[in-house]
C-alpha cells in the first residue's frame, strides 16, 4: 500500500512552524516512515510545477503555515487546496493571521514607506521600492504582489482543520498527524486542540485567589515576575483565560504570561474582545478617572488583545485604511 502523501508549505510566517516540525525530534522519523512527503520547500527541492503536475486531491494533507500576504502565497494556497484532501492551517499565522496580521493596522503604503525609506538602518536615496514587474535588459522580472490585507488561510481558501500555536507544540502536532493517519479526525472545521482555556492546565492556576481585581497593570519587562504565582494575580496581563489550552502552558512554565497564540475556544468569536471584557470588568476603580488610569497600564490594546488574531478578529483590520492599493494614498 502506498504511503499517504503529505505536504508542508510556508507562507507569511517566521519559520518557527517549520522548526516545530523539526522539533518533533526523533519522532519525525516515525512520521517520515509513515508518510511520503511530496512537497516541503524548506527542506526538500520541489518546484511549484511538481505540485501542479500532481493529480487533484492526491495529497492526503497539506500543513500550511503562515498568513497570506502576497499573491504568490494566495496562488499556492489555491493550488495546495486543489491538490489536497485535507488542507490544514498549521500554526497561529495560518489559523488567525498571527503576528504578521498586526500589520493590518497599517496600509501597504505606510508599511513600504517605513521599511524602504524610514527605518533607521535604511539607506535608499533613490527611494526604490519593490515592484511587481520590472524591465531589465529586455527581460521582464516579476515579484509577487504585496497585498493590502494580511489574511488567515481560511480567508483565502477553505480549510479543513486548524492546528494552533506559535508554533504548534510537538505534542499537538504529533496528535494531529496521528489522528490524520489513523483516520480519527473530528468533524471538519475544528481546531485540533482541547476546547478549554489554558488555565485548566496552567501550573499556576491554584495560586489565583477568587477575588482578583486590578488596581494597576504591569508589563512583564517592568516588573519582577514571581515564578510561581498566577500572572493576573501579579497585575500582569495573561491571555490564558481567553486562550485555548493544549500548549501545556509552555510560556507560563517559562515564567512568561500567555499572549494568546492558541486562539479562542470554539465558543468565542473574538478572542480579544472577550479578554478585554473579562479583564476590564475586574478593574477595581469605580470612577471614570480611576478606571482610565488603571487601564492606561495597557498601552497597546490591539497588540495586547489581538497579538495573534487581528486578521480573524471581527473587524479584521484598521477599518479606515485604503483598500484600492493606491500607493499615492497612505
Amino acid at each position: 500500500m502506498p504511503k499517504p502523501k503529505i505536504a508542508f508549505y510556508w507562507c507569511a510566517s517566521c519559520g518557527g512552524c517549520e522548526e516545530a516540525v523539526v522539533d518533533l525530534a526523533e519522532d519525525i522519523l516515525g512520521v517520515v516512515e509513515a508518510v511520503d512527503i511530496v512537497f516541503w520547500p524548506v527542506a526538500m527541492d520541489f518546484k511549484k510545477k511538481d505540485v501542479e503536475a500532481m493529480p487533484d486531491q492526491s495529497i492526503v494533507a497539506t500543513l500550511l503555515n503562515g498568513a497570506i500576504r502576497t499573491s504568490e502565497q494566495e496562488e499556492m494556497a489555491h493550488l495546495l487546496r486543489r491538490k489536497s484532501q485535507f488542507l490544514i492551517a498549521y500554526g497561529a499565522c495560518a489559523q488567525l493571521g498571527g503576528i504578521p496580521s498586526l500589520a493590518n493596522q497599517f496600509s501597504r503604503e505606510q508599511l513600504l514607506r517605513y521599511v524602504y525609506e524610514e527605518t533607521p538602518t535604511m539607506v535608499n536615496d533613490a527611494k526604490t521600492r519593490p515592484q511587481s514587474t520590472f524591465q531589465n535588459n529586455g527581460h521582464t522580472v516579476t515579484l509577487p504582489e504585496f497585498r493590502n490585507v494580511v489574511r488567515a488561510l481560511d480567508q483565502v481558501v477553505g480549510v479543513d482543520y486548524y492546528i494552533p500555536g506559535c508554533p504548534p507544540t510537538p505534542k499537538i502536532t504529533k496528535a494531529a498527524v496521528g489522528a490524520l493517519l489513523e483516520g480519527k479526525l473530528p468533524p471538519k472545521g475544528g481546531v485540533l486542540a482541547p476546547d478549554i482555556a489554558l488555565c485548566d492546565q496552567c501550573p499556576r492556576k491554584a495560586t489565583k485567589p477568587t477575588n482578583v481585581s486590578f488596581t494597576e497593570f504591569k508589563r512583564p519587562h517592568t516588573t519582577h515576575l514571581d515564578p510561581g504565582k498566577c500572572f493576573l494575580t501579579q497585575s500582569v496581563v495573561c491571555m490564558g483565560p481567553a486562550t485555548r489550552g493544549g500548549c501545556e502552558a509552555v510560556c507560563t512554565r517559562g515564567n512568561m504570561p500567555c499572549s494568546g497564540c492558541f486562539g479562542p475556544t470554539s465558543r468565542v468569536r473574538d478572542q480579544g474582545a472577550k479578554m478585554l471584557s473579562s479583564l476590564c470588568a475586574n478593574v477595581a476603580s469605580k470612577d471614570e478617572g480611576g478606571i482610565s488610569g488603571i487601564l492606561s497600564g495597557i498601552p497597546d490594546p490591539v497588540g495586547t488583545f489581538y497579538r495573534y488574531g487581528l486578521a480573524k478578529s471581527l473587524l479584521r483590520r484598521k477599518v479606515d485604511l485604503p483598500t484600492d492599493g493606491d500607493r499615492a494614498k497612505s
Binding site: 478585554l276 476590564c280 470588568a281 478606571i291 490594546p301
Partner: peptide, 9 residues
C-alpha cells in the same frame, strides 16, 4: 470599565 478600553481599541 469595558467600554473605556473598547473605545481605545
Amino acid at each position: 470599565r469595558r467600554f473605556q478600553m473598547l473605545k481605545r481599541l
